Computed example of a mutant assay.
Amino acid sequence: MSAFKPKNELNDIIKRYLSGKASAEEISFIDEYYNFLGKRDVSGQVPNEELQFLEDQNFRAIQNKITADKKYNLNTVYKYISIAAALVLVCGSILFLKDQKILSSSSTTKAKIENLDVLPGSDKAILTLANGKKVVLDANTAANISDTKGISISKTEDGKLIYTVLNHQLVDKENNAFNTIETPNGGQYQIVLPDGTKVWLNAASSLKYSEVFVGNERSVQLTGEAYFEVAKNKTKPFHVRSKNQDVEVLGTHFNINSYMDDKTIKTTLLEGSIKISNQKSNKTLKPGEQAVTGIAENAFIHVSNDVDLDDEVAWKNGLFRFNDLELRDVLIQLERWYDVKIDYSSLPNKRYNGMVPRTSKLSQVLAMLEKTGNIKFQLTEGKRLKVISKI
């Protein structure tokens, strides 16, 4: 295999495995790891005192098998295992994805769910143009949406909205026209802004921006969650405003989670540098750090480097990643992505570890949650989901 970024490559292999697109070598790798883990009960939390022992045993077992078969480059495989061992959720994840594969090919899932199901979310959104016209963005939308004043707005087949400046001389330098793109529950979308900045919008999110950035800054307004890859421009900083927070960047990669019904805003930096400010204070983040800010105007900004970057951007990479996550937080993600109504009135105190593609049907995700907890789910008409504790 060629060189890669270990965590991203591991995620890619898992996605290919679950979608049936993995190579024979990749399937064998997953099977080797799964078969070894399957010899011991790792469905729950691994005690801290046993974790290191288990990690060592996992690596030695796979190392011996691979060395004997001479199928793999051992340095490459060690990258996979070292990354996996560094994640507390790895044991659950490998078993989780293997069981998910079995479930997807089985005629029955054994999940205690009604004979109803919900398909996963998809690329869909609503674009509101400066003149108030609304354009539904989905698979049926025409490629050419607008072409005025030297600016082209087009849509690609893979769910991407692109702004292109065709003629700089025709662009109105005083243009202060704003567009807004909104994703519903069960929707996501990618947009390329006029300056080349790429934005991925998660479900139930919106982004307001200028048709063309004029003046001495580039500014957008975000509600919900989005991942940004900001085009570099040292003379014109890029600002993301959400709730009572402002993020200033010159060119970098970061994720902002600022849903209106959440009590905090989480800003996670993957590359470059950003400055976060509100009425109370300001902080500068380094790669690998996360800022957590309350929604009040006078809230403090707390910075932490104890964050798993893969968890924070899993949604953008097509995955759910549950890393010691409370059931309520798991269900909130499912509610937004599958556009269901969840009864939160009597949730058991449970936490989950694992990973599953966002392309899975709701029944498959619920079946896995049922297998790892003393609970069952009831899905009824109107896409209403109830959690029931087993006696």
Rank of each mutant, 00 (worst) to 15 (best):
L51T: 07
S104K: 07
L87R: 15
T76D: 07
F59C: 04
L54W: 05
T76F: 02
S105N: 06
G38V: 04
S104R: 12
Q100G: 11
D31H: 04
A84C: 07
C91E: 15
Q52R: 08
G92T: 13
N73S: 02
S82L: 15
R40M: 14
S107I: 15
T76H: 07
K65V: 00
I81N: 03
I83M: 09
L87V: 01
D69M: 07
S107R: 12
D69G: 04
F36E: 09
D123T: 13
Y33E: 04
D31M: 05
Y72K: 06
K98Y: 11
L119H: 10
Q100I: 13
I94M: 06
Q45Y: 04
L97M: 11
N58V: 00
L97V: 14
Y80M: 12
K110G: 04
Q52L: 12
V46F: 00
L51W: 09
A125V: 14
K71I: 14
P47H: 01
T109E: 08
K124W: 01
K71W: 09
I66E: 05
N48C: 03
Y80W: 12
D56L: 08
A68Q: 13
N115W: 13
I113L: 00
V42Y: 13
F96H: 13
S93G: 14
E32L: 01
L103P: 05
N75S: 09
L97R: 13
K39A: 08
T108C: 13
N48A: 11
K39I: 02
I102S: 15
A86E: 08
Q100M: 15
A111E: 02
L87D: 14
N75A: 15
L116V: 08
R60W: 02
F59L: 12
I113P: 03
L74H: 11
I62H: 01
D69P: 07
A61H: 03
F36Y: 07
R40D: 14
L87H: 11
I94G: 07
N73W: 10
E55F: 00
D31C: 04
I66N: 06
E50V: 00
A86N: 10
V118S: 09
N35F: 06
Y78W: 10
P47F: 00
P47Q: 12
K71E: 08
T108N: 05
Y80V: 14
I113F: 03
I126H: 10
I126Y: 05
T67N: 11
V90P: 10
F96T: 12
L116Q: 04
L74K: 10
